[in-house]
């Protein structure tokens, strides 16, 4: 359950979760930095990830019990009125996505809606989400920027970050590889120089 102090809260979309969650398991237990930063998912993302997969996949672990339990830990605790605000925000986001010709999945729009209403940061590499987030001035970072932040705030060693990247690479799951590896290379250099 989230506390409402001065925590920095990052809300993960499905793909960011899938990129991070098996190496950094249990991901949602992770609290790091000062003021404390932590990660959350929302029920809509959990529901999607808990669906049984029908294609051969590297991510079959995502609908296993311990991962489902992990995702449920940090749902935003919101009252009925705030939930209404989230639904309303979702409708605004949908209207804008449609008028701007952006493809954003219904669940990803929920991620943005929660972030908009609750003032959270989003972790996602989705192009449509990024464009929509910009229009609503919702802060959003990609997985590589989150990993850099995680390292800088003492949440993980460079070896652990390297392991996350290795697994993503083995799965052919690096988003925007050129930018990703450029940023990761700089992080590695920085870590080596310490």
């Amino acid at each position: 359950m989230l506390s409402s102090g001065n925590e920095r809260v990052f809300i993960l979309d499905s793909n960011a979760y899938l990129r991070l969650a098996d190496v950094l398991h249990p991901l949602l237990d992770l609290t790091f930095g000062d003021p404390p930063a932590k990660l959350i998912t929302i029920p809509e993302v959990n529901e999607e990830l808990s669906r049984s997969h029908r294609l051969r996949s590297h991510f079959a672990w995502a609908n296993q019990g311990d991962f489902i339990a992990d995702r449920k830990k940090n749902y935003p605790k919101i009252d009925r009125k705030t939930h209404g605000d989230v639904i309303s925000a979702w409708e605004y986001l949908s209207g804008t996505a449609r008028s701007e010709g952006l493809i954003v999945s219904p669940t990803d729009k929920y991620v943005l809606a929660y972030a908009l209403v609750l003032g959270y940061k989003v972790v996602s590499d989705d192009r449509g989400m990024r464009q929509l987030a910009e229009l609503y001035q919702i802060p959003m970072i990609g997985v590589i920027d989150f990993l850099i932040f995680l390292y800088d705030e003492g949440g993980a060693s460079i070896e652990t970050i390297q392991e996350v990247v290795d697994v993503m690479e083995r799965r052919d799951d690096i988003p925007d590889p050129k930018t990703f590896f450029s940023k990761f290379g700089k992080l590695c250099q920085r870590a080596a120089s310490l």
């Binding site: 029908r54 294609l55 954003v104 999945s105 669940t107 990803d108 989705d126």
Partner: peptide, 25 residues
């Protein structure tokens, strides 16, 4: 053509994000 991500595949086909990742690649 658009550089869209996995989310577009999930949204177009009504499939789970796990299957969408596999389809996307």
């Amino acid at each position: 053509a658009t550089g869209s991500s996995e989310g577009a595949v999930a949204a177009a086909l009504g499939i789970s994000p796990v299957d969408a990742k596999a389809m996307y690649r």
